[in-house]
Write a protein that binds this DNA or RNA. Structure first.
Length: 422
RNA sequence: GUGGAUGUAGCUCAGUUGGUCAGAGCGCCGGAUUGUGGAUCCGGAGGUCGCGGGUUCGACACCCGUCAUCCACCCCA
């Protein structure tokens, strides 16, 4: 029989790892809460066209990375490759624009992209993200960036850098693009093969190329910053001064270009030197045109997404609680009358709100105590045949080795008073 | 999609130019301790050497193919 294995690039998160995942998710939720974002849960699959229209048809994600399949009626559906599209769709569909309160959402969950797996890159991965709708004010950008920074800082992730850039308005970029393309043609011979191809498809990305030769050649390229309209400049200046005013450190990076088509004005990315090649921990930006492009009212918006497994990868060991003995009672019931009495006691403790465990494989007291030790419980309740005869169990403190008699008829009260006393 | 590295016990890994090389440590189960955990000692279970071909008297080792994993390119969170 063939072993059925997990899908390439899709990982199990085992119990040993879930505590660090909880820490990450709970930290993110707590801060999002503090900043007035409310949780939204949108489907993990949508009509394919939603992603094609929002992310951009010429992006790698849409061109070759989507998990797309046909529904029974022939409709093309896609497993979400990111969270913004679905959130925007829900925002429009439920007429949230008509709600007078701020429409600020956060989400958390799996995303799917058919890429070659490597360190920090999986086919099913998890993102936590936020979207802030309706506010064109630069303080909305700052608020979102601050939230991202606060979450990552709270998690004490090492060597973080926040990079930020101004992409200008859609019109600014349209005006800049031919100027850049014109320049790039003059140095095309010295660029890498990928960049020569990108010259036509997405010239802005050439600026973001990591090949040293390309970087050197494009150094004298005309800068987008020089083609920006006054409103775009002012907006960006206000974002930067906003970050300054609340103490968020950043670095300007005029080469920073996000991969998704919908970004405009502010774009940002937090990277860590502690990761491998895939070093982006979180990223986002403003996407003022997207809601309208998807059939909603003109709506300014900003958001970010962060990669949960990348954070899990770099979360310091000290960040989550070490395994000290927990206030759990292991019930060691053994012998012809002790085993059933132990099983009843186990349930009794649980109903009284006392965490209790047992290993039904163990038959001797020795093997029970070994399991209790492995499970790192604080106490073991020993119930053998002798105890049943006397109507008294033995509660053993696993740290001090002290043992106390507890009445089997008033078990929970006796046990909990000893637990509290320790 | 492209490249490189690696696949031997549950885990981490040895295995010398092909000739008792099917091994160690940890873990697991049991015993020493007939009802008291962690330490020590002793014993035991556990492997189609990723898979399929080929070369050879003989392959865990060499060759070819294949699959998987990891890392990098690309791209991105």
């Amino acid at each position: 029989m063939n072993m059925i294995k997990g899908i390439k690039g899709v990982k199990d998160i085992l119990p040993e790892e879930t505590s660090r995942w909880r820490l990450i998710e709970e930290t993110a939720r707590r801060w999002a809460d503090l900043y007035g974002f409310r949780e939204i849960r949108v489907p993990i699959f949508e009509v394919t066209e939603l992603f094609a229209r929002s992310i951009g048809t010429s992006t790698d994600i849409v061109e070759k990375e989507m998990y797309t399949f046909q529904d029974r009626d022939g409709t093309s559906l896609t497993l979400r490759p990111e969270g913004t599209a679905g959130t925007v769709r829900a925002y429009i569909e439920h007429h949230r624009a008509a709600d007078p309160t701020p429409q600020k959402f956060f989400y958390s969950g799996p995303m799917f992209r058919h890429e070659r797996p490597q360190a920090g890159r999986l086919r099913q991965f998890h993102q936590f993200g936020v979207e802030s709708f309706g506010m064109a004010d630069p303080r909305a950008d700052v608020e979102v960036i601050a939230l991202l920074w606060r979450i990552l800082s709270d998690l004490k992730l090492p060597s973080l850098t926040l990079e930020i850039n101004n992409l200008g308005s859609t019109e600014d970029r349209a005006a800049y693009r031919p100027r850049l393309t014109e320049f790039l043609r003059t140095v095309a011979g010295a660029l890498c093969a990928n960049c020569r191809r990108r010259l036509d498809t997405n010239p802005l990305r050439v600026l973001d190329c990591k090949v040293p030769g390309c970087r050197a050649e494009t150094e004298p390229a005309p800068r987008l910053a020089d083609s920006l309209s006054d409103p775009a400049r002012t907006h960006f200046a206000d974002v930067l001064s906003g970050l300054d005013s609340i103490g968020i450190p950043y670095r300007l990076n005029h080469r920073l270009v996000r991969g998704l088509d919908y970004y405009c004005l502010t774009t940002f990315e937090v990277t860590s030197a502690a990761l491998g090649a895939q070093n982006a921990v979180g990223a986002g930006g403003r996407y003022d045109g997207l809601v309208e492009a998807l059939g909603g009212p003109p709506t300014p918006a900003v958001g970010f997404a962060m990669g949960l497994e990348r954070i899990a990868l770099m979360l310091p060991q000290t960040a989550y609680p070490s395994s000290s003995r927990s206030p759990v009672v292991y019930v060691a019931g053994f012998g012809v009358s002790g085993a059933p009495a132990g099983f009843s006691a186990l349930e009794e403790l649980r109903l009284a709100g006392i965490p209790a465990v047992a290993d039904f494989r163990a038959t001797s007291l020795k093997s029970h105590l070994r399991q209790a030790d492995r499970l790192a419980v604080g106490f073991t309740l020993i119930i053998g045949d002798d105890e049943v005869d006397k109507g008294v169990g033995i509660l053993r403190d696993m740290n001090t080795k002290n043992q106390y008699g507890v009445s089997l008829t008033s078990l929970c009260g006796d046990v909990s008073s000893h637990i509290r006393g320790s």
